[in-house]
Design a protein around this nucleic acid. Structure first.
Lengths: 233, 233
DNA sequence: GTAAATTTGTGCTATAAAACATAGTTATAA
DNA sequence: TTATAACTATGTTTTATAGCACAAATTTAC
C-alpha cells in the first residue's frame, strides 16, 4: 500500500485550487514543506477540541466533518471531496478545532503548516480573498443546513441529504447511482435522525419508486420526486 | 425623530471596528461616501434573495438575522448589537442575500457601498484578514447552533437561547435582567419551537425558580440551573 | 472456514412537541 | 375612550419520531 501511495498521488499543482494565485516563491516554499499523509477507512484525521496545526487538502478519498452533540450523537456538518480544504477555520479563528474530520474511505491528505498558511494569508491579498470567499460560501451553507435540519420532517431531511450528496459527488456512468456509498448510520447523522429511521425511510422511498437500493448503492429512479420530497416531505 | 437622529448618532470612528486598520485615504473615502439610515421597529433592512448592495454596520438598536424555512416558519440565525456588521457575506460570495435582516427596535445603520467595500478588501490585506476572522467565528457559531437546535429538547433549546442572549447583550444594572426584551415569538424563532411552547416553557422555568418574568423582561434567578438546563434539558 | 462483530431491516411502544382551540391581556389606532 | 389588533397564556388532541427489542444479513477477524 505504501508503494501505491506514490503511484496514484495527484501532484500538488492539480489539487491545490489556490495554486494559480501563489507567487513563485510561495510555490517553491509550499512544495518544499508540504507533507502527505495516508489514512485508512474510518480514521480520525483531526479531532474536535484539539489545537489545529495544519491547513489540510484532501488529495484523494472522501472525508466527513462532524460535531459531537448531546448523548454522543454525531452530527455530520459537511462531507469533502478531493481538492477541498479543511482545518483552516480554526487556524484563522485561532481556536481549537470545532469539528472532527474522519475518513470514509482510504484517503490521502496534503498538509501545510499553520504558521506558513497564516503567513501567506497575511502577505498575499488574493490568497486571503480566496479563503474569504470560501468561508462566505460555507457560512451560507451552514445556515441553510440549520434551517433544513430543524424545520423539515424525516422524509424531507433524508431526501435533502440525498440531493446534497448528488450535488457534491454526482452520479456514476449509469446516470443514476450516487457516486458515494455511505453507511446507513452516516446517512442518518447527515440527516439528523436515528439509523433505524434512515433505514426505514430509505425502504419507503424505494417502495415509492423514488430510489432503488443495492447494499450501500443508491440509485435515483425519480429525481423530480426526490426533489419534491426534499421540499415538501 | 429626524432631529434626534443627529443628536445620538455615534461617530463612525467609534462604530467601525475596523477603523484602526484603514489607511488615511480609505478613512477619508469612507467618511465621504458613508450613508446613514434610520429604521423603525420591525422594519426589514435587507431581504433574503435580494442582491446585496452595501456592507452595513449597526450603529444603534438591535436587529435579527433570519431565514425563511418550510411553511413560512422563520429561523433566527443570529442577533446583532451595535458595532456588528451584516450584508457582507453575500457581497463576498457574490450571491443574493441568504438572510433577512429586521430591526427589533429603532435602529441606526451606517452603510458602505458594496463596490467600495470589495475594493478595500482587495487592496488592504489587514482589512481582508479581519473579515476572514469574522467569518471564521461566524461559521463555528453557525455549526454549533445547528447541533444545539437539532439535538436538544425544548427545555435545552430555550435555556440555550437565553444563555446566548446573556452572552451577547449582558445583564442590566441589577445583574439579573437580560438586556434585551424580545417577543415570545422571536424567542421561539430563535430556539426552533412554536410560540406556544416558548411561552409554556418560560412559565415552567419561572415555576422552577430558574427565571422570573415581568412582561418581556426576563430576570435570571438561578444562573447555574439555567446553564445545567441548557446542557441537559 | 467458522465465529464474532457489525450493519441492515422491521415491528412496537413511549413520548416530545406540533397543531389546534380558546381565552385573557396588553398595545395600537381611530 | 373605545374598538381592534397583537401578544400572551394554557389546556387538549394528534402526530412524528426516538427508543427499544430482536432478527437477518453481511463483513471482519481469527
Amino acid at each position: 500500500m505504501d508503494n501505491n501511495e506514490n503511484i496514484d498521488l495527484i501532484p500538488v499543482e492539480d489539487v491545490l485550487t489556490f495554486w494559480d494565485i501563489l507567487t513563485p516563491d510561495e510555490r517553491n516554499f509550499i512544495k518544499n514543506t508540504l507533507s502527505v499523509q495516508h489514512f485508512k477507512k474510518n480514521e480520525v484525521i483531526q479531532r474536535e477540541g484539539d489545537k489545529p496545526t495544519h491547513l489540510m487538502i484532501l488529495a484523494s478519498g472522501n472525508v466527513k466533518v462532524s460535531k459531537m452533540g448531546t448523548n454522543n450523537r454525531i452530527q455530520i456538518v459537511r462531507i469533502l471531496k478531493p481538492g477541498e480544504h479543511f482545518g483552516f477555520r480554526a487556524i484563522i479563528a485561532n481556536e481549537p478545532n470545532s469539528t472532527t474530520v474522519t475518513s470514509f474511505e482510504e484517503s490521502m491528505v496534503y498538509s501545510i503548516c499553520a504558521e506558513h498558511f497564516i503567513s501567506i494569508l497575511k502577505n498575499n491579498n488574493a490568497f486571503c480573498y480566496r479563503f474569504l470567499e470560501e468561508l462566505a460560501f460555507d457560512l451560507a451553507k451552514s445556515d441553510a443546513r440549520t434551517v433544513n435540519l430543524t424545520q423539515k420532517h424525516i422524509r424531507g431531511r433524508l431526501a435533502g441529504a440525498l440531493c446534497a450528496l448528488i450535488e457534491n459527488y454526482g452520479l456514476e456512468e449509469d446516470g443514476a447511482t450516487i457516486s458515494i456509498y455511505l453507511a446507513r448510520e452516516d446517512l442518518a447523522n447527515l440527516s439528523n435522525m436515528t439509523t433505524s429511521n434512515a433505514i426505514r425511510t430509505l425502504a419507503i422511498f424505494a417502495n415509492e419508486g423514488i430510489i432503488a437500493l443495492d447494499g450501500r448503492k443508491i440509485k435515483i429512479i425519480d429525481m423530480e420526486k426526490l426533489q419534491r420530497t426534499s421540499k415538501y416531505g
